[in-house]
Nucleic acid binder design. Structure first.
Length: 299
DNA sequence: ATCCAGGATAGCG
DNA sequence: CGCTATCATGGA
């Protein structure tokens, strides 16, 4: 009973109507929450007070880091560690990386990032909107789609929106989506949602396929090529060896591992990434984050 | 104003 | 094969 009075509580809305949210403290297992939610793998989490608000699938939540622990809403003690992949053996993963200077520096800078477990459709649709967009744009598009088409869910007095289901997007017309500033990506998002709703490809069934075959299937969706397919494989299908090659990681790899702007194509870079080992996707995320934060201006 | 962004793709040689 | 222009939109 003495514990109850020390249980942390929080009120997430300005108007302090309703009971405050009761929080639980759980071990963070070495995670850095801020890096994890802001390193460019997921886009909808929003800073609120000392933590972040957002949804894990249908579940609205609040996450806050306190020293090495996490504060989560009461009742979320199981779903949060799964979503944030706190079970990943980060020591094993980092020990599997090659020991070159670039990797060492990236580990030092990016330590604490977890490759989280995102809902498959949400991940696929979000990265469909990511083509030729800055991270801040992807984020605002995701939030607009949620607000306009998502389901309203409540956490205490706080209202959030889930990412709209494929059926909801499939029923939209192009102009609805264009209002979320999707531009030329709207066509692809709509057509992909319609393919899924028509059962042309079942996303869940790809889980049982070898990575190469799952990638091939993902690339059948309009607007999905190797890069976006690899994002979905890494961030939603738990394929830790999948490496998305984008402009940033391309620059990092060429400048670090190849000589002076020799033309090195994406396919050759992709081959090279086997060098990073069985957790190449993790290594890629470390490098991506380090490079993007460090060389943003200087190029 | 000009350039570029966690790309994909049709259309060329 | 590999290379290029093009696709909307907004921040720097």
């Amino acid at each position: 009973m003495a514990h109850r009075s020390t249980q942390p509580v929080i009120s997430l809305t300005c108007k302090s109507a309703g009971p405050a949210l009761r929080l639980c403290r759980i071990p963070g297992a070495g995670i850095d929450l801020e890096k994890t939610l802001e390193c460019g793998q997921v886009f909808h989490w929003t800073r609120r007070q000392a933590g972040f608000i957002g949804t894990m699938g249908e579940t609205p939540s609040y996450l806050e880091q306190v020293e090495s622990d996490l504060l989560v809403p009461e009742g979320h003690q199981t779903v949060v560690p799964r979503y944030l992949a706190l079970d990943h053996s980060i020591d094993v993963i980092e020990a599997s990386f090659p020991k070159d200077p670039a990797i060492r520096a990236a580990i030092r800078f990016s330590r604490g990032i977890r490759i989280i477990r995102q809902p498959i459709w949400e991940c696929l649709a979000t990265f469909l909107t990511s083509a030729m967009k800055q991270v801040s744009h992807i984020r605002s598009i995701s939030l607009m789609m949620r607000k306009r088409f998502g389901k309203k869910v409540r956490l205490g007095s706080l209202e959030l929106h889930t990412f709209p289901a494929p059926e909801v997007i499939a029923a939209c017309n192009l102009n609805d989506l264009l209002e979320c500033r999707l531009g030329f990506r709207a066509r692809n998002v709509l057509a992909t949602a319609q393919m899924i709703t028509a059962n042309k490809i079942q996303l869940k069934e790809l889980s049982s396929l070898p990575t190469a075959e799952a990638r091939e299937m993902l690339c059948r969706f309009p607007g999905v090529g190797d890069k976006i397919a690899n994002c979905v494989l890494l961030f939603a299908y738990e394929r830790m060896d999948a490496v998305p090659i984008d402009v940033w990681i391309g620059r990092a790899l060429r400048q670090t591992y190849f000589s002076e702007d020799q033309p090195v194509g994406a396919s050759r870079l992709s081959e090279f990434c086997r060098y990073f080992g069985p957790y190449a996707g993790y290594a890629q995320q470390y490098l991506f984050h380090h490079w993007r934060m460090t060389y943003r201006k200087t190029r």
